[in-house]
Design a protein around this nucleic acid. Sequence first.
RNA 1: GUGGGUAUAGCUCAGUUGGUUAGAGCGUCAGGUUGUGGCCCUGAAGGCCGUGGGUUCGAGUCCCAUUACUCACCCCA
Length: 422
Amino acid sequence: MIQKPRGTLDILPGESKKWQFIESACRKVCKKHGFGEIRFPTFEETQLFARGVGDTTDVVQKEMYTFTDRDGTSYTLRPEGTASVARAVIENGLAGGTMPLKLFYIINCFRHERPQAGRYREFYQFGAELFGATSPSADAKLILLASDFLKEIGLKNISLHINSIGCPECRSVYRDALVKYFSQKKEDLCQTCRSRLETNPLRILDCKSPICKGIAADAPKTIDYLCQSCKEHFDGLKERLSEVGIDYTVDCNIVRGLDYYSRTVFEFISEGIGAQSTVCGGGRYDGLVSQIGGPELAGIGFAAGINRLVLSMENGSSFKDEEEGPDLYIAAIGEKASVKANGLCAKLSDLGIVSETDLVGRSLKAQMKYANKIDAAFTLILGDGELQTGRAQLRNMKTGDQFDVSPDDIESIIKIVKREGV
RNA sequence: GUGGGUAUAGCUCAGUUGGUUAGAGCGUCAGGUUGUGGCCCUGAAGGCCGUGGGUUCGAGUCCCAUUACUCACCCCA
C-alpha cells in the first residue's frame, strides 16, 4: 500500500467545498481592494530563498525541500510566497511601473517540519503584497484587506495583534538591549532560550515556557526603542486602524521569524485550533527587493494559512454546506432504454437540467434507491413499454407525485422539473 | 530534531485476569415475486488485529523494536 507523503493532504469533495468557499472569499475581497492575482513557479532557485528569507532562519536551514536539477542547479520547492513575488516583480519590470503595486496569490508551500494540528509539510496560503508605498496608509490598507477577508469568511474568535520591530538601525539597538537584559537572567532561561540568546534573541519573547514568559514580561519593549521615524510610522498606523474601525492590541512579543521583516508586523490569532494559532501573519519588508538584487522598493504583505482557516471554520463561519443532488435521474431498464436514456441525459444536461442515468447496470429498484441516495429531485422511468407507447412516468422524489410525459417531449419535461423543483 | 498518546472491517469503535472458527453499529452490494426510492426485515462481501521480533502449551490481549497517525516542543501561515 503506497501512502501519501507525510504531512500532505487529500481533500475530498465534502471538504473541498470549504476550500472553494475560502478561495472565493480571497478573490472577492482582493477584487474589492484592487489586488490582482499573480501566479509563479512552485520551485525557484535555492538562492532566492537563502537571500530573501534569510540564511540563518530555520526555514532555510532545515525545512526546505531542495533538489539538484540535471544541469546541477539547486532548486527549492517554495517554502513561502513573498520572495517569489518579489523576484517576479523585479524580473518582469514591474518595479519600474505604476505604484503602488498590489498583488495576491493562492498557492501551496512546502516545509519539512514535523506535522501537527494546523501544520503540514505541504500547506496552502492566501497571500497579498503591496509594493512601492512606505506610508503607514499602506500598512493599514493591507491589514484592512486581511481583516475584510477574515470577516468575509465569518470566523469567530479572531484577534489582531500588531507590533513594530523597527528598521535595521533601531532594531540593532533594541537587540543589544534585549541581549543585555536576558544575559542577566541567563541561568533561569530554558535550554532553547539560552541558545536563542546567541542566534535569535527576539524569539525569547514568544517562548511558550512559563518561566521565560515571566522573564520576558519585564524585558525591554520594541516600541520603546523605535527611532523617531519608525515611531511616527507605527503611531500613524494605529491612528489609521482606529479610523477604519479595526480593533487591535499592541503586542510587543510578536516577532516574525523571517529575516526580511522590518517595522510593522502583525498576526491574526484564532482560538481553539491548537497550538498553531496564527491564522494570518505578515509585516513590512522594505529591504527585501534590494536584498535579492532589485531596486529599492518598499513592500508590505501577509499570508493566511488556508489549512488553519479551514480548521477554525469548525468553530463557526458563514460557510453553508448545501448538498444538492441532480435535477433528474433517468432510470433505464434494458439495453434500448439505456441507449435512449444516455441521449436524453446529454440533451437535458445541455439545457441546464442536471441529469444522471445508470452507469453500472442496476435493477430498477436499485436505481430508485440510488436516485434517492444522491437526492435527485425527479426520476424518469424508461423501459421497453415507454419506448413503444411514447409515454413515461416522471416522478417527483420529494412528494411522490407522478406525471405522464413523452420521453421525446423534452420541453414539457423541463417545464415540470422547473416548476415543481422550485 | 525532541517528547507524550494511539494503531482491530471502507468509517466509528467493542473485544473480560492471555484460551477454540475476531464482533457490533454505520456504510457498500444483493434480496423481501410480476416495473417504483426513503422505514423495516433478511443475507452477502469485507480483517495476516500497523509491521518485525520475543515471552507462553497458547498472544488482538504481555514485553521489545520499527513504521504510521496524532498532540505538544521547536518553527511558522
